[in-house]
Write a protein that binds this DNA or RNA. Structure first.
Lengths: 204, 204
DNA sequence: CCAATTACCAACTGATTGGTCGGTTTATTT
DNA sequence: AAATAAACCGACCAATCAGTTGGTAATTGG
């Protein structure tokens, strides 16, 4: 009964290292041998646990990637009051984490979306689904913010969510060299300005 | 003397098809044979004109890619009055072009930045240099807009440029499936809202 | 303690990769 | 027309890829 423990432990080691390398080098540019070498495991071990490279990647997306996005960008917002402050704080935290990570290669999710776009519709679906979880959560939170009097009632919540997500993806794409700190500072400054616009009862 | 014409014609055919495929499939995921097959040319022809795959790609970046970004995002802004309207118009045009391109795979430049980040510093430099041309142009235009009374004097031009670029990169990354039209509409709506904020003499 | 199952090994396959090279065709010069 | 150089061909090479296979070591239930 407890034999599954070893299986799952090995699988998780593979997934964890897999995500790390896929994130650093891209999916197509990372070979299974790269991952196995880092773990001192063999091809046989890999294909014992996973059907294919694609199956392996999907399992990473559904487990690790979803968790990563959810805990960083969705959970901190869910059910909170004062949506605009909570949202900007979650984004600030995410950017700070990224900046202090000396091996940062952008927003994991959007990097993969870029890589798989037009190549693998099935994987794309898994990725955009995660994106959608964030989007829906943002919209819901903004709508609730209207009812609670934090957000201007004339604001188009869906449009705001689109704009917030877009800008976050972009700034993470740009945060790739030594200029991360200044970039983050400028970005957050403007994000908060933008939020001021939609918090008061101005046009929107 | 006129023999160079043929050389350049062939090289440009290769570069054009190369950019097309690199854009669609990514650099690492596109083989030289893919490109040559499309042109009915041989390996020998390729290596007669270019030293390596990397050299080939760099030539594409410096010629075609630079031109593409410049004509779409820099030129329409340069030296114009009323910067905010000109900027938002250039972005709207770029998004509309992208939307009506039934083979759209995101913002070429940022796609490559994502792909090469952490892998090839030399190529990264060429790519970020193009990005910087756009950024500098935006900043200059915004600054001039202050002098001419179009942009609020308290606005941080660099921060605005960062925010505009980020959001554009992001929305282009998201514009990858059937939802392009709605996405573009929402995005432009919020961009213009944001611009209203920095055009009047409000805080910024 | 032993048989069965689980977990893993490592050599191999066939396809593809970027790049080389000796040779042929095409165009230009004299 | 002959000689020269530019443009291109395509077979080949070593390396690498995802995936297969036939086996062995470790674990576990009876």
């Amino acid at each position: 009964m407890e034999k599954n423990l070893k299986r799952m432990a090995t699988m998780q080691r593979m997934q964890s290292t897999g995500l790390e390398l896929f994130y650093q080098q891209g999916y197509y540019n990372t070979s299974i041998d790269d991952i196995l070498k880092k773990l001192s495991l063999s091809k046989g071990a890999f294909y014992y646990h996973f059907q294919s490279k694609e199956d392996f990647f999907i399992s990473i997306v559904q487990n690790l990637l979803f968790q990563k996005v959810y805990s960083m960008l969705v959970e901190p917002i869910e059910g909170q009051e004062d949506p605009l402050n909570v949202i900007s704080k979650s984004i600030e935290d995410a950017l700070e984490t990224a900046e202090h990570n000396n091996m940062d290669f952008g927003f994991v999710l959007s990097n993969f979306i870029t890589e798989f776009n037009g190549k693998n519709p099935e994987i794309m679906k898994y990725l955009t689904d995660i994106m959608k979880v964030w989007e829906v959560n943002l919209i819901t939170t903004l709508q609730k913010g209207k009812t609670d009097g934090y957000v201007d009632r004339h604001v188009d919540s869906e449009a705001v969510a689109t704009y917030v997500i877009s800008s976050y993806i972009g700034v993470r794409t740009l945060m790739v060299e030594g200029n991360s700190k200044m970039l983050r500072y400028k970005y957050v400054q403007q994000l908060k300005n933008y939020f001021k616009l939609i918090s008061q009862k101005a046009v929107a």
